[in-house]
């Protein structure tokens, strides 16, 4: 074929989902994360259903007020993440930097409050091990499921904070523009997902 003919041939690929690859990849990855948390939450539901005597009433051991405040903090960090993304969509690099920093600080605060909560609970004998559990209510299955679910969520938040710091450094270097800010969008997806998981965990672990 001549060059002239070649030039006229439409070589755009088949339409996928209409999003860029990294975003699609993050969606797909989050689906596998859903299954991971399903296995943990599912185990919790089975154990709680089978052994209600192991689980104390809401607020009996866990500090609901403190965690409610912490939950609010995490929700706010999702809002600031949206703000950061909206800023760079407008080309506002300063805004992006500012809101990313706010998100990082709130994420860090969330993990710190969780660490504080862990320390307080462990002093009361609320521990995951069968032999270590000495809290005045509930049983070892309560401790084990609590630490596994909130712990793996906390690990996800911590990884998210690290990723946000990475994105923040790139933002400080001015590597994002109106046209190219895929990284911000992708980390934002992850951050909202982690937030959503927490709302589910907070409901079933603390409130019910």
């Amino acid at each position: 074929m001549s060059d002239a003919v070649l030039a006229t041939i439409d070589r755009t690929p088949e339409p996928g989902m209409g999003v860029f690859n990294k975003k699609l990849g993050m969606w797909v990855f989050l689906l596998s994360e859903v299954m991971f948390f399903t296995s943990l939450i599912g185990s919790y539901i089975i154990l709680r259903y089978a052994h209600p005597d192991h689980f104390a009433a809401p607020g009996e051991l866990l500090n609901v007020n403190l965690t409610a405040a912490n939950t609010f903090l995490l929700i706010c960090s999702s809002v600031s993440m949206v703000k950061a993304f909206a800023a760079i969509q407008q080309g506002d690099l300063k805004g992006l930097q500012r809101w990313l920093l706010v998100t990082i600080l709130m994420g860090t605060a969330f993990v710190s409050v969780q660490a504080y909560e862990y320390i307080m609970l462990s002093h009361e004998g609320f521990l995951p091990g069968l032999a270590d559990y000495t809290a005045h209510a509930g049983g070892p299955l309560y401790g084990a499921t609590f630490y596994v679910m909130t712990g793996f969520h906390g690990a996800h938040v911590s990884l998210g904070v690290l990723a946000l710091i990475f994105v923040y450094i790139r933002a400080l270097r001015g590597e994002y523009t109106v046209a190219d800010h895929e990284g911000v969008e992708v980390i934002g997806l992850y951050w909202h997902f982690v937030d959503l998981v927490w709302i589910i965990l907070f409901t079933i672990v603390y409130l019910i």
Partner: peptide
């Protein structure tokens, strides 16, 4: 499917190492 296994393996590992009782 793999994340389900990973979740289960983690619980089993905790039973083995830190003495949980899943």
């Amino acid at each position: 499917a793999i994340p389900i296994l990973t979740g289960g393996l983690i619980l089993l590992l905790l039973d083995q190492t830190i003495g949980t009782a899943f």
